[in-house]
Amino acid sequence: MAARDEDDAFRWDGDDDPTLSVTPDAVASSAAVTAPEPDPVPEEPRDEQEPAGIGNVALVAYGVLGGVYALWTAGWVIGALRLKGRIEGLSGSVADVMFQGTMVLAIIAPAIWFLVSLLGTRGKQAWQRFLWLGIGVLVLIPWPFVMVGVIGQ
């Protein structure tokens, strides 16, 4: 390869080179010379149909539902703390281990439901996944937060 000057791109020298011709005959002859015919490869028959990717609307809906589940988790945390304070204040006793255990399970329940719904309906249709996620939104409402509230009345 010959050494080129940095200013070669700014000159018209070499434009009359016949190998740079773009006529249809030159394109056809160069394609025949440079691209040999590939051997036909038989395609393997596929028993399974590849699933289509999720659309933009579904992706946004998953994000919104994930946000709702994150809010439900925060609601369970706040509600459990308020409910614990209310139980201790009214009865004068410390909340027992069963109460603490159930509140821990209630706090992690939205995250578990979201993950199980996504993983459990992986091969199913999208409407089934949204059905299970919607059921979870209704079932896992943080009732201590709703009933006692942030102020703890």
Rank of each mutant, 00 (worst) to 15 (best):
Asp7Phe: 13
Phe99Gly: 03
Pro18Ser: 09
Ala80Asp: 03
Leu20Ala: 14
Leu71Tyr: 12
Ala106Met: 07
Val137Asp: 01
Val150Ala: 10
Met147Thr: 13
Val41Arg: 03
Met98Cys: 14
Trp113His: 02
Ala70Ser: 05
Thr34Leu: 14
Met103Tyr: 00
Phe114Glu: 04
Tyr69Cys: 03
Ala74Tyr: 06
Ala28Val: 13
Thr73Tyr: 03
Gly120Leu: 01
Leu118Asp: 07
Met1Lys: 10
Leu118Ala: 09
Ala26Glu: 04
Asp15Ala: 15
Ser91Ile: 02
Thr121Lys: 00
Val150Ser: 11
Gln153Arg: 10
Trp143Ser: 06
Val22Gln: 06
Ala80Asn: 05
Leu105Ser: 11
Leu81Arg: 01
Glu50Val: 09
Ala3Met: 11
Leu119Glu: 14
Val33Trp: 13
Gly67Lys: 01
Gly89Asp: 10
Gly149Trp: 05
Arg46Phe: 09
Ser21Leu: 11
Val33Arg: 15
Val60Tyr: 04
Arg11His: 13
Ala74Ile: 04
Leu71Ser: 12
Pro51Met: 03
Ala32Asn: 09
Phe10Arg: 08
Gln128Phe: 13
Glu37Pro: 09
Gly136Met: 06
Asp15Tyr: 12
Lys84Gly: 07
Pro38Leu: 01
Val33Ser: 15
Phe114Arg: 01
Gly152Gln: 03
Val57Asp: 10
Ala9Lys: 15
Arg46His: 07
Ile78His: 03
Ala126Asn: 11
Ile151Gly: 02
Val27Arg: 03
Gly67Tyr: 05
Ala61Glu: 05
Ser93Asp: 05
Ile108Lys: 05
Leu118Gln: 06
Ala80Cys: 08
Glu88Gln: 05
Tyr62Asp: 09
Thr23His: 10
Val97Ile: 01
Gly120Ala: 07
Pro24Gly: 13
Leu133Ile: 03
Ala32Gly: 11
Gln49Leu: 13
Glu50Thr: 11
Leu90Ser: 15
Glu50Asp: 12
Phe130Asn: 00
Ile107Ala: 11
Ala111Tyr: 08
